[in-house]
Design a protein around this nucleic acid. Structure first.
Lengths: 206, 206
DNA sequence: AATTCTATGTAACCAAAGTTACATAAGCAA
DNA sequence: TTGCTTATGTAACTTTGGTTACATAGAATT
């Protein structure tokens, strides 16, 4: 693993070495559940390859996407949960084949004391997650479904560096916390309006 | 000010002294805007008396309540914003007559290095805010308006240690990001169902 | 090619909440 | 008391999105 990959964090060889020495690497394939709602955590995950989808789910099983954890990033919720002996309030699923380095909480705490850059890294991630949660609140509270769908597609396209993404209306609806028919209906309207082009398991931005 | 009041944080006399020495106390009256959306922050506020309402607002002026900052707590968003030279993504308003101690960001950073309990305090607050934001997402994404109204009233009653709160349908609607008529309509239904008792500028839980 | 999945299209209907418009009532001030 | 302001009640209507039900079409499998 290259810790130079840690998002906006310049890892010194020492930190690098420590992480590798005390962490455990695990691999997940697409769709694997990494962390379940209400589970206890005692390690924080650093994504060294691939990406994770973090969702909030409701008692009745409905879910909504919160954010993605990309290569080099960590799950801040796990950290806080582990620190305060609390159960997870979110669910994490591998978005693709993913490799994760799990660092025990105690080790993270001692790293913070030894390396100020490490604390910097954590605060930066916090900041990012906070903003992402605020964006979700904004979307759910104030935006209409068509706009939310379009934003979602745009974000996905950006991630994939492409004008086309491979996704079904079904999964799209699950991520946005709505029903498949609603997505199909609105996508069709958007196609008629010339905003997107639809195919089977495929959406292209125009 | 008594820093023993800092939420779940046992302030040592040294920290207490430092905060008083480097901070600036300001007073606000009910309704005063403490922090505006898009404003830059270079100090973090600690509420020493009263409470602050933190809202997210949309381009079109619609707003939604995120959480309250109570006595002894701080605004974590300001901290992150200040740390990363970012503008505020939220708006803060004094919920009642409130006294705030503003600590310059640099001082906060040096305190973290010197006093581990201080870092503990900050992480604890982060944790709390994260959970509160998740609750908001849950409510907005999955709950119906009547349930959200009821939850809001219950929270307010808890804060006030009373079965009755003084609030107009208008302000209630603004906090929940909906329209006054909707609130009036649903409250009436809830009164008919025997859940609450309504009065002018007054709601009583049953 | 025939069968079987899986994904999408569409219609008809319903429920929740936003909108407009106006009536009434409660408190306050002159 | 009279008027004025603010708060609430309610009706009628619209929009958005959720629900049910079924048709069709593309892809994969035998």
């Amino acid at each position: 693993m290259e810790l130079g990959q840690l998002n906006e964090f310049k890892a010194t060889p020492e930190i690098n070495e420590q992480l590798m020495a005390f962490g455990t690497v695990k691999s997940f394939k697409e769709g694997d559940v990494i962390l379940n709602e209400n589970a206890y955590t005692n390690a924080i995950p650093i994504v060294t390859n691939g990406s994770i989808r973090v969702m909030r789910s409701d008692e009745d099983g409905r879910e909504i996407l919160l954010y993605y954890i990309n290569k080099g990033e960590s799950c801040i919720m796990s950290f806080l949960g582990g620190l305060h002996q609390d159960t997870s309030k979110v669910k994490a699923v591998a978005e693709e084949a993913t490799e994760i380095l799990f660092i025990p909480i105690e080790k993270v705490i001692s790293l913070i004391k030894e390396y100020p850059q490490w604390l910097e890294y954590i605060f930066r991630l916090y900041h990012k997650r906070f903003e992402e949660l605020l964006e979700v609140i904004n979307a759910v509270a104030f935006k209409k479904m068509d706009e939310r769908i379009l934003n979602f597609i745009q974000k996905k396209c950006e991630m994939a560096q492409s004008k086309t993404i491979a996704i079904t209306h079904e999964t799209l609806s699950l991520e946005l916390g709505t029903a498949r028919v609603v997505v199909s209906r609105l996508l069709k309207q958007m196609e008629d309006a010339g905003l997107v082009k639809l195919g089977r398991n495929k959406i292209t931005l125009i």
